[in-house]
Amino acid sequence: MPSVHDNEQPKNAPDATSNPSEFSIEVISSTTATREALLQVIAGLAPIGLDPEDSETVELVLAEVLNNIVEHAYPEVGTVGAIHIRCRHLADGLHFRIRDFGNRMPDDKAPLGEMRSYDVDVEDLPEGGFGWFLIRDLAKDVHYSRIAGGNQLDLRIAVDYG
């Protein structure tokens, strides 16, 4: 396991670890935390040379996961909450573990992300609920657990190593 670093400003490059197929990053929850974390993850994945489509999938799935943490796990303004992301690069894809120490998911379950019908009047169209749908659609082996005062979400993104 790579160590989680200090509480200073998030850096723009992930920590080097002894294992080249794994990296970890940490950001502190804020309105810009998702963007910071995505930049670091993209930097961490650079050596793998993902094709653009896979890279976009990783960015979208993680954006949805991280936005949910910022909005729901740490909703109180001024809360200083850590978000850890670990990425392992294995034969069947990228395995991400995302952890935070904020509010638990409702009923201790990750939402199913079912889509509502669009066969409605314009004013009744949904403006939300797309996030979990996208996560479940694009990621595999999505597993949530509430562990020791924190949330842990594991997921895999099957990427093409070419």
């Binding site: 936005n67 314009v122 004013e123 403006e127 609920g129 797309f130 996030g131 996208l134």
Partner: peptide, 20 residues
């Protein structure tokens, strides 16, 4: 070059605001 579910929701909200 990037949109997430919040951005998508904002575009839907814009369409609803402009309608009918």
């Amino acid at each position: 070059t990037f949109i997430d579910s919040s951005g998508l929701g904002a575009i839907v909200a814009t369409m609803k605001h402009l309608a009918p």
